[in-house]
Design a protein around this nucleic acid. Structure first.
Lengths: 195, 195
DNA sequence: CAGCTATGAATGAATG
DNA sequence: CATTCATTCATAGCTG
């Protein structure tokens, strides 16, 4: 049901199970690692999280702060670009059903994000607005879902040409690979999560 | 579609570009996170242990083309390219004062265009958006062709060239999994008592 | 084969 | 919220 039209080409690529497995594993490992590291950090220190210049490598896309501040009024760059960390956090929050970003919450979030880079409440607000609006395009799929492809990775075939709403066109699949329970413990094994 | 013709038996699975992108992003994010956390840790602790699991700013992300790269026509990889027919139609519609591409209309157009090639609503939408934006930017030129030679549209000619990718994550040139080599475990094993 | 240009796509911000 | 605008990234293709 990819495209109802006559095109037979499916916009996808082929991966071997092996590759998929590798990917999944890596993500899982990273996820756990990050988790542990954060926890660890929080445990053994009370210093504010990094906010130095080390976030230079944090940009999902390279950090465009190289802009010349030489000219006159071009002081502040337009279009805020979230750093990886900010994005991660936002994404996380977004998932938590808190689809109702009330002003109060926004402030909190902004606070937290500011630890990882420049951010304004407005931006946070915008981000949520956009996020919602754009994912609104990925709802209709209630017909054949029942078959339950509870395989391992949820490979959902996104279709954008199907009929349906008459709203936005912004669509974006948002798959999050579930961290398989590959006992990472054996890696960081150590109940040493200080507490 | 790319190369199954080469290897008759290719046990793989299909992923959409979106999914691939998400994966890539996630890995990159995790890589960065881990990296930063490790760095942070190192700067907090006195012991010069561990190096981040992956080459720090080596840049994560892996190449999109995992198994293709063949000479075949991986035509539909990204970036839809309108056929002349489609273009004609689009131009036509554009001119007809339908500068207001309302969703409803878009669907119709998509339908029609699909008769002449692969197309998605999103693409149609994008096309109109770009079209307008572009023509709008060309207008303020006020027939002032006088100004020498190299001026016309070069206003925004940034270093769009192939330079400066040093440090960006989007510069996936080669397959390159950050490959968390678990150097972290050392960290977790000892920093425990640091402080 | 390299660099440039045109243009498809993604997304932050603005507007109704 | 629903749409639209603007800016920027990434790439297909032309050209020297």
């Amino acid at each position: 049901m990819e495209q109802e039209s006559l095109n037979g080409t499916f916009d996808g690529r082929v991966m071997t199970e092996e590759q998929m497995e590798t990917l999944r594993k890596q993500i899982a490992i990273y996820a756990v690692l990050c988790d542990q590291l954060v926890f660890l950090h929080n445990s053994l220190s009370s210093v504010p999280l990094l906010s130095s210049g080390m976030n230079s490598m944090g940009g999902g896309y390279f950090d465009p702060m190289v802009a010349s501040s030489s000219s006159q009024g071009m002081s502040t760059r337009h279009r805020w670009t979230p750093t990886s960390m900010q994005l991660q956090i936002l994404e996380n929050i977004y998932k938590e059903g808190s689809g109702t970003p009330n002003p109060r919450r926004i402030k909190e979030i902004t606070m937290e994000l500011s630890e990882h880079g420049e951010i304004t409440e407005k931006s946070v607000y915008n981000w949520f607005q956009n996020r919602r609006a754009r994912s609104k395009r990925k709802q209709p799929q209630t017909t054949t879902i029942t078959s339950g492809q509870a395989d391992d990775a949820a490979v959902t075939t996104e279709e954008r040409g199907s009929c349906g709403d008459s709203g936005g066109f912004e669509s974006y699949e948002h798959i999050l690979f579930p961290s398989p329970d590959l006992g990472i413990e054996h890696l960081l094994n150590r109940d040493k999560f200080i507490d």
